[in-house]
C-alpha cells in the first residue's frame, strides 16, 4: 500500500519537474521562467522527497531526507527571490514593461 502511494508521489513529482523544465523553455521572459523553475523547486521536491521517505524504515535516512527537504524549501525560494531582485535592480524589464516600451503589439 505504502509502496503504491510512494510511487504515485514519485511519478507526479517527476511530472511536475518535467513541466517546470518545459516551462523554462516555453515561457517568454526571465521573470516568467523563474515561475516555471519554482514549480520544480517547490512541489516536485516536496513530492519526490515524501515519496522517498515513504520507502525508508523511518529511521536516520528519513530524518536526512526531511533535512534535505527543509533545507531546499528554505533556500530555493530565497535563491529565486534574490536572483529576481538583482535582475530587477540590474535593469531587466518584465514582459509587460518591454511591450509598453515598444508601443508595438507584437505577436
Amino acid at each position: 500500500m505504502i509502496e503504491i502511494i510512494s510511487s504515485v508521489f514519485l511519478i507526479v513529482g517527476a511530472f511536475f519537474s518535467l513541466t517546470g523544465a518545459v516551462g523554462i523553455f516555453k515561457f517568454p521572459d526571465f521573470f516568467t521562467r523563474v515561475h516555471a523553475a519554482s514549480v520544480t523547486d517547490s512541489i516536485s521536491t516536496i513530492l519526490i522527497i515524501f515519496g522517498l521517505i515513504l520507502r525508508t524504515d523511518f529511521d536516520l535516512v528519513a530524518v536526512k531526507l526531511l533535512f534535505i527537504l527543509i533545507f531546499m524549501l528554505l533556500t530555493s525560494p530565497t535563491a529565486s527571490h534574490a536572483l529576481a531582485k538583482s535582475a530587477r535592480h540590474g535593469g531587466l524589464l518584465t514582459l509587460a514593461e518591454t511591450r509598453s516600451d515598444k508601443k508595438v503589439g507584437d505577436d
Binding site: 533545507f71 528554505l74 533556500t75 530565497t78 527571490h81 534574490a82 531582485k85 535592480h89
Partner: peptide, 13 residues
C-alpha cells in the same frame, strides 16, 4: 545589505 530575505535565511541555515 539590501537583501533582507537573504540575510534572514542565511542566518537560519
Amino acid at each position: 545589505k539590501s537583501h533582507l530575505v537573504l540575510r534572514v535565511v542565511a542566518k537560519m541555515i
